[in-house]
């Protein structure tokens, strides 16, 4: 648990249609904290992120962000209150240029667009020379940078990342993890779901292990990595 969490999910129950995938999940994210969520396929990892971002309605439980209960809010209202979300797939506007992708991330922003673009380009200097290129023409890693950049355009306090390294080569994975550290250094808390459990634990401040829609374990990344039972059950021995 975190003393002064920016986000706290308590007793979350819900899923798609009639079937529940989450059966009472609790989690918290502190300010400037990187929190990982790992677990086997079907554990409900991505579903938790979707529930936080209003893409799935919870049947029970609460989601508090800062001092507001945001459960049941639509995504465009959640974006406005300071949460950014990077989906696992289809996370760029392929036909639009890199710069237009970033501008769309700032759709709700009436002023300060130039300054926000500048901040994103400082964080991802590789994107500067590609800014007039369609996002669909970029490599997987660069596309992920565009997706991160788009989600950062409204200066969120919390970024939700759904398997940001899925399908990327090891070289790009390391680059993405470095970007996540840079994002945190810029003052943003990060909640990420990861398939690469060992890597995720190694670099998260804290992590949750989920299985079958329930909390199984929680602790610092290093503690969970050292736990033999967790290692056997979820990290492949």
């Amino acid at each position: 648990m975190t003393a002064d969490p920016i986000l706290s999910v308590a007793g979350a129950v819900g899923g798609y249609g009639g079937a529940d995938i989450l059966h009472g999940i609790d989690l918290t994210v502190g300010r400037r904290e990187i929190v990982g969520v790992i677990g086997p396929n079907g554990a409900g990892k991505s579903t938790v992120l979707k529930a936080i971002f209003g893409l799935i309605r919870l049947r029970q439980g609460s989601i508090r962000f800062e001092d507001q209960d945001i459960a049941g809010w639509p995504p465009n209202r959640i974006v406005r209150c300071g949460i950014g979300y990077v989906p696992q797939v289809d996370n760029v506007f392929r036909e639009m240029t890199v710069q237009e992708n970033l501008e769309m991330g700032a759709f709700l922003r009436r002023e300060g667009l130039e300054a926000a673009l500048e901040r994103v380009y400082v964080l991802f200097p590789d994107l500067v020379e590609k800014r007039r290129k369609p996002a669909g023409s970029l490599s997987g890693g660069q596309r992920q940078m565009v997706a991160f950049g788009r989600a950062l355009m409204l200066d969120p306090q919390l970024l939700l990342l759904d398997e940001p390294t899925a399908g990327l080569s090891p070289r790009y994975c390391e680059q993405i993890f470095q970007i996540i550290r840079d994002v945190r250094a810029a003052g943003v808390a990060v909640l990420l779901v990861e398939q690469h459990a060992k890597q995720a634990l190694a670099f998260s401040d804290r992590a949750y292990v989920l299985a079958s829609g329930r909390n199984r374990a929680e602790g610092s990344g290093a503690d969970l990595l050292a736990d033999r039972e967790i290692a056997q059950m979820f990290l492949g021995g």
Partner: peptide, 21 residues
């Protein structure tokens, strides 16, 4: 701004919604 929003919705409607459009 709104013209680009139309293109964004044509390109990827889910992402348009996630972006706050």
């Amino acid at each position: 701004r709104w013209g680009k929003a139309m293109r964004a919705m044509s390109d990827n409607p889910d992402l348009a919604q996630l972006s706050g459009i």
